[in-house]
């Protein structure tokens, strides 16, 4: 069967690709577009390593078909930093040592950033429940939760001076 020709927007840039019907958005990102920052940990939407934003909504790219990207806006880990300027949450992960092996980190940053875009003053409980769809096997989550909380505090501080 002929491949589908899909036009979409990825990290604010126009993008197009050919994909088979059964290819997931994650397959397309990784295998067709060389955007390998989104990771496949399970392929069943349980680990969150492939978290991306679809029109601003947090989704698992492994549960979205490539063809479904047509006409929508996709945000991936590759678009989080502005050029070489890290997003405050990326910097917070580094400062707090919130990663060990780093395979889950792109998913956590996408998910954490999505939280902060909705709620810049989350409680620890809110952070923990928001991130409950992302598995990390290395850190025990302590430093990840701290990174998100500290980043929120810093962004609130900057907003109040801004």
């Amino acid at each position: 069967m002929a491949k589908h020709h899909i036009q979409t927007t990825i990290n604010g840039e126009p993008a197009e690709f050919l994909c088979e019907t059964q290819q997931t958005l994650l397959d397309v990102l990784r295998d067709e577009l060389d955007l390998t920052g989104s990771k496949e940990g399970c392929g069943t939407g349980d680990c969150g390593a492939c978290s991306v934003l679809l029109d601003g909504r947090l989704v698992c790219a492994c549960l979205v078909l490539g063809v479904e990207a047509a006409g929508h806006e996709i945000s991936t880990i590759e678009g989080v930093a502005q050029g070489n300027v890290l997003h405050p949450l990326q910097q917070a992960f580094l400062n707090e040592a919130a990663l060990q092996c780093g395979i889950c980190t792109p998913g956590f940053i996408i998910a954490g950033k999505a939280l902060l875009e909705r709620n810049l003053n989350p409680t620890e409980t809110e952070v923990r429940y928001w991130l409950a769809g992302n598995l990390c096997r290395c850190t025990g989550y302590d430093k990840i939760v701290r990174a998100v909380m500290n980043c929120a505090a810093q962004m609130r501080e900057e907003a109040s001076h801004g």
């Binding site: 955007l35 990771k39 991936t76 992960f93 400062n95 990663l99 395979i103 792109p106």
Partner: peptide, 23 residues
């Protein structure tokens, strides 16, 4: 001391190459 790890930026930006990323 607690410096930022040297491989950190690659890992928070998605640039780090893991097992399944090699082509």
């Amino acid at each position: 001391t607690r410096p930022v790890r040297p491989d950190g930026v690659d890992k928070v930006t998605g640039r780090a190459e893991f097992g399944a990323d090699h082509q």
